[in-house]
Design a protein around this nucleic acid. Structure first.
Lengths: 211, 211
DNA sequence: ACTGCCATAACCCTAATGTGGTATTGTACA
DNA sequence: TGTACAATACCACATTAGGGTTATGGCAGT
């Protein structure tokens, strides 16, 4: 198996170093390398890329936008970020844009190679310092409330409909039950959630991720 | 620099393999290895551990609870999960419990060693397949809607109060304005959000993180 | 000076929501 | 074979919410 690889990197020397390093490997075939993402879509298509190495800070279209574009047209192409930046925003934006890995430029050549291989078999390599940011993100997540509300299945269903913005009547219609029954259920739900209006219930349901 | 290391792992052969592997390294000194976490706090303190390798599935106190206990008493001790499990819940629970890394048991000995070194210098190593789960988590985050609602400051303030579960009356009281003014504001807010009830507005506000 | 936008407020009116009951049915469990 | 509880339904009553309309004073831009 040989993977077609494209490098987007505006630093000429680094770009050439990467080409040399990667072409030395039997499984990678560097089919193109470019200093910017301006024609990324065209190039990815033309050279039938399987894997893209993407810098972030480039003139013209930035690397993150490049990822977004490539992934929206060629979702199966793997993209690994390769950048000096390790600030939270760039990391999270890249991930959300669809990147399959995030490596810092201080990575060793051998680890870079194994990371790229990891990507091609479905992994998502991440430099330890990047992973640290990710860990911190999770620890700062709002603490899931452990409160137990003991809603019945029917009650959860009706609460979900309320959260979606349905009125009592609409819920009644969708559940094929009487309006009064909806009222009764919601009355019980409000009691269990210790609230006394629909808006409060919706807020509590969303904040506590009741499902 | 030599780091004191403790292994929690209920598989006897694997535990001994780890001991041998790690003791071979000059910078690691395996000061203890145990088949369960029942006395983890005592052992971490007694042996002045700098680093803990933690299995998850063990009899008695599980590895995740072990992490929680150790981190709450000795937050500076580094803990790396070393387990065969790669399901989302165990990964995210471990991270939230305070783990500093998450490695799968199929990791190569050499990568295990460099990963442990990474941890000691502040990194958070993660096996590529674990990282993949993390990436997926981020991509499934509710898409921040780019919709612009153009709420005025007063409107945002009143919407926030509604989200907190206040009724029209309560909002009026808290803002020192008439009930009818609250109604008017909310009427305008509903129009801007393209909704027509308080519950819908609350849902939209929370989902779109309007602030 | 004119215009547009915002916050405030009052009015009326109807529909929706919330609270208190009571009652029936079916199912699960001890 | 009771008991418990979920789900259903209906009734009565009070409050709230939401639509429409109009109006005033303040403030920013042109």
């Amino acid at each position: 198996m040989v993977y077609n690889l494209i490098v987007f990197e505006d630093n000429k020397r680094l770009r050439h170093s990467l080409e040399l390093l990667l072409n030395d490997e039997a499984i990678f075939n560097v089919v193109g390398s470019f200093a910017n993402c301006d024609d990324a879509l065209y190039e990815v298509e033309k050279y039938k890329a399987d894997l893209v190495i993407m810098d972030i800070d480039m003139p013209g279209i930035g690397g993150i936008e490049g990822v977004r574009q490539i992934k929206s047209y060629f979702p199966t192409v793997k993209i690994v970020m390769h950048t000096a930046f390790d600030d939270d925003n760039r990391i999270f934006e890249s991930i959300c844009a669809g990147a399959d890995g995030y490596l810092l430029k201080n990575i060793s050549p051998s680890l870079l190679l194994t990371s790229l291989e990891d990507v091609m078999v479905g992994g998502s390599p991440m430099s330890p310092h990047v992973a640290k940011k990710v860990f911190q993100y999770f620890r700062n997540l709002p603490v899931k409330n452990d409160e137990v509300f003991d809603l019945t299945d029917r009650e959860k269903e009706i609460l979900a409909l309320l959260v979606e913005g349905n009125s009592y009547k609409m819920i009644a219609a969708k559940c094929f039950i009487a309006n009064d029954t909806v009222k009764k259920h919601l009355h019980n739900i409000y009691a269990k959630l210790h609230v006394n209006s629909g808006t409060e219930a919706v807020a509590k349901a969303l904040k506590n991720n009741i499902k």
